[in-house]
Design a protein around this nucleic acid. Sequence first.
DNA 1: TGACCGAGAATTGGATACAATCTCCACTTC
DNA 2: GAAGTGGAGATTGTATCCAATTCTCGGTCA
Lengths: 221, 221
Amino acid sequence: MTRPGFRRPPTAQEAVLSELRLAIVTGELRPGEQVLQDALAERFGVSRVPLREALKILEGEGQVIYRPHRGYFVAELDLGDLREVYQIRDLLESESVRVAVPRITAEEIAALAADLEEVERASAAGDLVGMASANRRFHFGLIEAARMPRLMRLVRVLWDATDVYRSLYYADVTHREAVHDEHRQALDAIRRGDAEHAVVLLRQHRERAVTTLERLLSGGT
Amino acid sequence: MTRPGFRRPPTAQEAVLSELRLAIVTGELRPGEQVLQDALAERFGVSRVPLREALKILEGEGQVIYRPHRGYFVAELDLGDLREVYQIRDLLESESVRVAVPRITAEEIAALAADLEEVERASAAGDLVGMASANRRFHFGLIEAARMPRLMRLVRVLWDATDVYRSLYYADVTHREAVHDEHRQALDAIRRGDAEHAVVLLRQHRERAVTTLERLLSGGT
DNA sequence: TGACCGAGAATTGGATACAATCTCCACTTC
DNA sequence: GAAGTGGAGATTGTATCCAATTCTCGGTCA
């Protein structure tokens, strides 16, 4: 008996792909670093073939850069890139909210509310990983309601590209608390069917994150 | 001596990738059809390994669908998908025009004008392939001026996904002629630095194409 | 008749082996 | 010393082979 919703990847390339994603977000594979195929393949217990196929997926998502006969390198995201990603996210997520709000069902709204509870619970418990995944479920639960699979896929890739920075932002308690308010207000607007207000609130939500990150990154280092 | 700007693909996977793209846009590989790896690899004169890596790239772009242990299938694009792609293109291309127009250089505008000439020349000569590539250079030359590489990449993928339909649209002479006017007006607006007007014109340009295609596809079959 | 089963064929997934290319550094040459 | 050169070692790219999975199509049974 296997519990539903869970399945181990049916192929080695998929297993390797999630391992690679993990290694990138945790910073184990550092930006700019070359991905040495022999070493990684051995570590994952597979040959280089499935590893290379997984890398091709990540290349398409911009997570790694491929240079023929040189190999794969973990992508570096500078401040300009971060701004560009957030600018594109603004376009795509705003549109998805406009489409989603008139269509969203009561069940979906209930799920969003549950996700928010989980975000706050995990945040209070200092469970940053749990918070990150609940946060993701909240935002993508909303986008899902737009019923635009390609749009959602694009947003997903953009989120993945900036995962490292997002966890940096949420590492700070005061940021997390600000976020809870922003989330609740957005959910209220969604409940009322006020798409435009939700768009504005979520835009501010992102804006706050990106300007904070810009301060953090240009100041600190 | 190799002439500049020309280079044969340095790896088999890249060569196979362009061949695959070609086979898909020409309809040689039909939507829904399974990509039989042995047969294709033999036809291209390579082993299955580089073919599979090329397919992974196309999977990331949505041109093929991958099902573990089943293989790769050429993606099918129904009317709903077409609408979604155009809706997303509207968001991304409008933004890129807003960003590009204030930044565009005189050289870039001259290049756009040259592209338009080439579009009309090829169109008049019935050279649909030449027209398609000049048309592409025009639109992407404009997007390039926004200096947002990720945004441009997303638009590129969306264009690729609908290449088949675009050539269907341009097969009709009257459509081609309408397009010339639309192009010239858009270029005028760009020259005047009127980004918003260019956005509106280019939106109508796309809108006309997609509604025409919808009529064509739902009516004809 | 139709659902079900299973053996063989077809196809994909992955490991290994080897070829092609790049990187690095000692060495030569000017 | 600086620039160029050649080759050994490291790394990537691809072909081939075998294992794992799915598909096909008879036959069987209710």
